[in-house]
């Protein structure tokens, strides 16, 4: 481990979940700074999104290490589309992804709860009326 690596060498403890460095899958809060989350030679982490066919969204497929975006795209092609899984790929530096806070799941996603008037099924009186 080079000193530039901010990561403790032991397995991080459960008491600091959101600090998980070098994490992948977008779930993990990155450190600030450069995209280099590995050692001096360790390549940074990229999140890979694959569009499986035209008309569909890109979906997160996984992650990989690559020195730069150009190689990340190529590695993603080799790693995540060996079986015709995709027609388009995005790669994003893992630490460029901002994520909502898991511990605020109560409040952050509370508002839509109970607002069933946003859903068509709320309106029962119009049931049976054609083309509505």
């Amino acid at each position: 481990m080079s000193p530039s690596n901010p990561q403790p060498s032991q397995v991080p403890t459960g008491s600091q979940p959101s600090q998980a460095q070098a994490g992948s899958l977008a779930g993990v809060g990155p450190q600030t700074g450069s995209t280099t989350s590995g050692t001096a030679t360790g390549w940074p982490l990229w999140e890979v999104f694959v569009r499986s066919s035209r008309g569909l969204s890109h979906v997160h497929a996984g992650s990989l290490h690559a020195p730069d975006a150009a190689m990340a795209l190529r590695n993603a092609r080799d790693l995540y589309t060996r079986r015709n899984e995709g027609v388009s790929i995005w790669v994003v530096p893992a630490d460029a992804i901002a994520a909502s806070d898991p511990d605020s799941k109560g409040s952050f996603f509370e508002s839509p709860q109970g607002k069933d008037y946003r859903h068509a099924t709320y309106y029962v009186k119009s049931e049976g009326v054609k083309h509505l």
């Binding site: 481990m1 690596n5 990561q7 060498s9 397995v11 991080p12 600090q19 998980a20 460095q21 070098a22 994490g23 992948s24 899958l25 779930g27 993990v28 989350s37 590995g38 050692t39 360790g42 982490l45 996984g62 992650s63 990989l64 290490h65 790693l79 060996r82």
Partner: peptide, 27 residues
Amino acid sequence: VQDEAGHGLYLYSAAETLGTSRDEMMG
């Protein structure tokens, strides 16, 4: 055999989400 390299990579990625870098695991 190439697939196996891919499987290793998928799994290292999963482990990395727990905060341990691949470099460290490889080390």
